[in-house]
Design a protein around this nucleic acid. Structure first.
Length: 621
DNA sequence: TTAGGGTTAG
């Protein structure tokens, strides 16, 4: 079999199907194959790939279909009913070329071949994948006409088709009138509501369904994660465990993703052990999510160990790891890894380049960044997306090329968003360029009027330049626009308990001790040259009050709490909802030096790892 | 030979 397949002028290999499908084998090619087989004395029925060949050419035109049909009759009519062959073609096509499957179905109908439940099922799958609602409805009518509506399996496929075509009224009507439902029926509907972001209805259905499978739990957990509700996902996972339902690989992926979002390292590690004990680490997707979880929980080295230990890697594995190094300020590692990826022959995608460009901008590698940007277009045929433009503006702005960055924005073929103008604003702050800061804020106020972060930066630019009146004007603008400052919070997890600190808060039972410890540290910090930078406080108050506010920033409180409640020498890990302010950045550098502790802070953009008085971000963030 | 849940950026 293999020897003749290799020597054939026309070979159809499964992994080349998509390209073959776009230019189907012509009848003449098929005739060549036919002749070749006859000449070699190989019986046609031994050509296993014949059904593939027929499915590829059978749909290209009516003549090919007739020819394929005659081939089928010639080879198989005595042993296998013709319909089974067509069903297997339909099955194959519905996966790799659904539009051809639909064409094949219409040829079958035209040729008066009577469909069975399998034919309908495969065709509906093709309808789902191509969102062909009208054809799906025609198949529905056919199912009724042929009396197949007692087949739960088929009805589930039909329900899935209505869901995938986002025809929820039909889906719901169908669900309500189904004579028989099974757990799959409920799972299909629940999944669709999670995809539509209507978690309340998904949850309601989940609560009332008569029986639940692992897939029911997993569908809802994954739904919560996708809808940005990781806490609910983890809560449900705990319910699932209490109910005695064993998580599978997909459950593990979903819960790990929730851990990544929340920085819940303890649960993440527990899942890692569980996955290992079940043999799930052979699954690439499990490992990819595990890498992401470790990266987002601040353990980039462990993530790298997982990555290095993988026997099979996909573009997602590489992209996650490259992006992870970038996020942790390890630009060299990111670039080295990309070089290795190139050697393996795995093609980078647009996400890979987001990570690479981040690495370049964090390290100030201007030329490399420009090269990557050009290379992604010219060498890899990728179309830059808004994220790539954002990275480039960031890269240019940080390097002080603000005019060029501005020009770059004006020439962008896509509409600049808040991230893009925010990058220019960030550059304007670093390079103290009031004009460019004003230009950026002009757009940001329109795009994202409720985000207070931009006003803070602009006010800092003015204050830096000694324009205190202008800074005050920004505060007035903020007030007039009704912008509320997002309350900053930081969390630290010690012994499975997460402690949350809100700026200025005094609710924590250890508040007095925390303030006392802070005063001790402050004394030592001032001896080492710390001068509080009250320009980050945008409130109308005197200097002493501003300093007081500054000293109650949530990340400072969380770090001090960590110092008091963890053994000497251990790393302190903090999560923060906003970007670290510049005063806290200076303070944490000094604290890491004074206490000889590593402090890792995950802010809304990236990681800062403070050690021996320096930060992994090299003061660019 | 048919149906349902999963990963990287933002």
């Amino acid at each position: 079999m293999s020897s003749f397949t290799l020597s054939l002028p026309l070979t159809v290999q499964p992994h080349h199907r998509s390209s073959s499908a776009s230019s189907p084998a012509s009848p003449s090619q098929l005739k060549q194959l036919h002749a070749h087989l006859l000449k070699a004395g190989i019986p046609l029925s031994s050509a296993v790939s014949l059904s593939d060949v027929a499915s590829l050419c059978g749909v290209s035109d009516a003549a090919s279909f007739s020819y394929a049909r005659s081939l089928f009759r010639h080879c198989y009519s005595s042993t296998t009913p013709e319909l089974i062959l067509w069903n297997s073609c339909l099955n194959a096509l519905s996966s790799f070329s659904p539009s051809d499957a639909l064409l094949l179905f219409s040829r079958l109908r035209f040729a008066d071949i009577l469909p069975d439940t399998f034919t309908c099922s495969f065709t509906l799958k093709a309808c789902s994948r191509t969102s062909s609602l009208s054809l799906g409805m025609a198949v529905h009518a056919l199912i009724e006409k042929l009396g197949f509506q007692v087949d739960v399996f088929l009805l589930n496929t039909l329900l899935h088709m209505y869901c995938r075509c986002e025809s929820m009224i039909d889906a719901r009507r169908m669900f309500e009138t189904m004579p028989l439902r099974d757990v799959v029926t409920w799972n299909i509907l629940i999944t669709q509501y999670t995809k539509l972001g209507v978690m309340e209805i998904a949850r309601e259905l989940f609560e009332v369904m008569p029986e639940r499978s692992v897939r029911s739990w997993t569908a809802l957990i994954a739904g919560y994660v996708q809808c940005g509700q990781p806490k609910e996902a983890i809560q449900l996972f705990q319910e699932m465990e209490n109910a005695g339902c064993q998580p599978n690989e997909v459950t593990v992926v979903a819960v790990l993703a929730a851990c990544a979002d929340l920085g819940a390292l303890d649960l993440g590690e527990r899942l890692c052990k569980y996955a290992e004990s079940c043999g799930f680490l052979k699954n690439v997707r499990v490992c990819n999510t595990l890498i992401d979880m470790y990266i987002k929980c601040g353990c980039v080295d462990i993530a790298r160990n997982v990555f290095d230990g993988m026997t099979e890697r996909t573009v997602v594995s590489w992209s996650a790891m490259i992006g992870g190094h970038a996020m942790h300020g390890q630009g060299e590692e990111a670039l080295e890894l990309f070089a290795k990826m190139d050697e393996t022959g795995i093609r980078p995608n647009s996400v890979t380049f987001v990570g690479l460009l981040h690495a370049c901008s964090h390290m100030g590698l201007l030329d490399e960044g420009r090269r990557f940007f050009t290379s992604m277009i010219e060498d890899y045929g990728l179309v830059p997306e808004i994220e790539h433009y954002g990275c480039m503006v960031d890269l240019l702005s940080r390097a002080g090329l603000l005019e060029e960055a501005h020009e770059f924005i004006r020439k962008m073929p896509v509409e600049p968003n808040g991230v893009v103008w925010g990058a220019l604003l960030g550059g304007a702050r670093v390079h103290k360029d009031i004009k460019m800061g004003e230009e950026a804020i002009k757009h940001l106020v329109k795009l994202d009027p409720s985000n207070d972060g931009y006003y803070v930066v602009l006010s800092n630019i003015y204050a830096d330049a000694g324009h205190f009146d202008a800074a005050a004007q920004v505060r007035r603008l903020m007030r007039d626009q009704g912008v509320k400052k997002t309350p900053g919070w930081s969390t630290i997890t010690i012994n499975n308990v997460t402690h949350e600190f809100v700026a200025g808060e005094s609710k924590h039972p250890q508040t007095e001790e925390i303030y006392k410890k802070w005063d001790e540290l402050l004394h030592e910090m001032k001896l080492r040259g710390y001068v509080p930078d009250s320009s980050v406080v945008l409130l109308d108050m005197d200097e002493a009050e501003k300093e007081h506010v500054l000293y109650r920033h949530s990340e400072k409180l969380a770090v001090v709490f960590g110092l008091m409640n963890t053994p000497p020498g251990t790393t302190i890990k903090i999560m923060k909802n906003l970007r670290v302010c510049s005063d806290c950045h200076v303070a944490l550098k000094l604290i890491s030096e004074i206490t000889d502790r590593q402090i890792v802070v995950r802010d809304r953009n990236r990681f800062h790892s403070f050690k021996n008085g320096t930060c992994s971000c090299r003061d660019y963030w």
